[in-house]
C-alpha cells in the first residue's frame, strides 16, 4: 500500500504515470477552458502530449505537425530546458516537472 519512493521519482519509463504540471500560454487557453496550468501525466513528453490531446482535443495539432514531430515554432520546456536540447518527444519526465509550452509570436504591434 505504501508509495515507493523509487516509483515516485522514476523517470523516463514509457507507460509510467508520472504526474506533471503544464503551463499553457494564453493563445492556447481556448483549449483548456482558459486554465493557465493543467495537471497531466506521462512517462515521456510523447505520452504527455497524448494525455493532453485526450483531455484537451486539438492540443496535439497545436504542438505537433502531420508527421507527429514537435512544431519548430512551438517550444516545449521541461523545467526551463528546451526539449530540443534534451531528447525531444522522447524526453523523460519525472514527478513534479513543470512543462512550459511557448509558441513564437510575431507581435510588436
Amino acid at each position: 500500500m505504501s508509495i515507493q519512493p523509487s516509483a515516485m521519482w522514476s523517470r523516463g519509463k514509457e507507460g509510467t504515470a508520472v504526474a506533471v504540471r503544464v503551463k499553457i500560454p494564453t493563445p492556447l487557453r481556448g483549449l483548456t477552458s482558459e486554465r493557465d496550468t493543467v495537471a497531466a501525466e506521462g512517462g515521456t513528453l510523447n505520452e504527455l502530449v497524448q494525455h493532453l490531446e485526450a483531455e484537451f482535443p486539438g492540443m496535439r495539432e497545436r504542438l505537433c505537425d502531420d508527421t507527429g514531430a514537435l512544431r519548430r515554432f512551438v517550444n516545449v520546456y521541461i523545467n526551463g530546458e528546451d526539449v530540443r536540447f534534451l531528447d525531444g518527444l522522447a524526453s523523460p519526465l519525472k514527478e513534479g516537472d513543470e512543462i512550459s509550452i511557448v509558441p513564437a509570436v510575431a507581435g510588436g504591434c
Binding site: T26, R72, G107
Partner: peptide, 27 residues
C-alpha cells in the same frame, strides 16, 4: 514580442544564440 496577455523578451549576442536557435522556422 507580445500577443494577447503574453510577452517574451531576450537578448541575442554573438555566441549566445539567436532567434533562429529559439525558433528555427516561422509558423
Amino acid at each position: 514580442s507580445i500577443l494577447l496577455f503574453d510577452g517574451q523578451a531576450t537578448v541575442f549576442k554573438r555566441g549566445n544564440g539567436c532567434y533562429r536557435c529559439l525558433y528555427p522556422t516561422p509558423p
